[in-house]
C-alpha cells in the first residue's frame, strides 16, 4: 500500500529541541507540525520529519499553560505552523521567529479547534 510504518517517538518537552536538532543533523526536513486536542486542556503536538520519503514523528503532549519551545531556530520554515497552532488551539509556543501575535488568521471564534463544535456554533450565532 501507500506507505509503511510511520513511527512515533513520544518525547518529553525538554527533550524536544535536542531531538529535533538530531533529525536536522541526520538530514531530515520538517514536513509539518500537527496539533490535536486530546481532552479538555490537553493537546498533542506531532512534528513530522522526512528523509528519502520515510516519515518519522516526534510527539509531545502539553497543557495550554505549558510553554513549548519553538523549533524555528532549527527549522526556519516552521514559523507558520507554530503561529497557526497558537491561533487555532491557544497553545503557548515561546520564541517563534516571526510571531504574528494572533493576526495570521482573522476568525470569529477564538481558538476554534480548542472548543467543541456546538459551542463554536453558538458563538457564531451570537455574532
Amino acid at each position: 500500500m501507500a506507505e509503511g510504518e510511520q513511527p512515533v517517538n513520544a518525547v518529553k518537552l525538554k527533550e524536544l529541541l535536542g531531538e529535533a536538532e538530531a533529525y536536522k543533523e541526520k538530514g531530515y526536513r520538517l514536513v509539518h507540525i500537527c496539533c490535536t486536542k486530546l481532552a479538555e486542556n490537553s493537546f498533542e503536538l506531532t512534528y513530522a520529519f522526512d528523509k528519502d520519503y520515510k516519515l518519522e514523528n516526534l510527539r509531545i503532549t502539553a497543557a495550554r499553560e505549558t510553554e513549548i519551545p519553538s523549533v524555528t531556530k532549527i527549522f526556519p520554515g516552521a514559523f507558520l505552523y507554530e503561529n497557526e497552532i497558537m491561533e487555532f488551539f491557544g497553545v503557548a509556543i515561546k520564541g517563534v521567529s516571526v510571531d504574528f501575535k494572533g493576526h495570521l488568521y482573522k476568525k470569529k471564534v477564538e481558538y476554534p479547534f480548542a472548543v467543541d463544535t456546538d459551542k463554536v456554533d453558538e458563538s457564531c450565532k451570537k455574532g
Partner: peptide, 18 residues
C-alpha cells in the same frame, strides 16, 4: 516581506465533527 493570510479561511477541518 511579511505575509498575512486568512482571507479565504473557512475552517473546513472543523467540519469533520459534522
Amino acid at each position: 516581506a511579511i505575509p498575512s493570510i486568512g482571507y479565504l479561511h473557512r475552517g473546513l477541518e472543523k467540519l469533520v465533527d459534522k
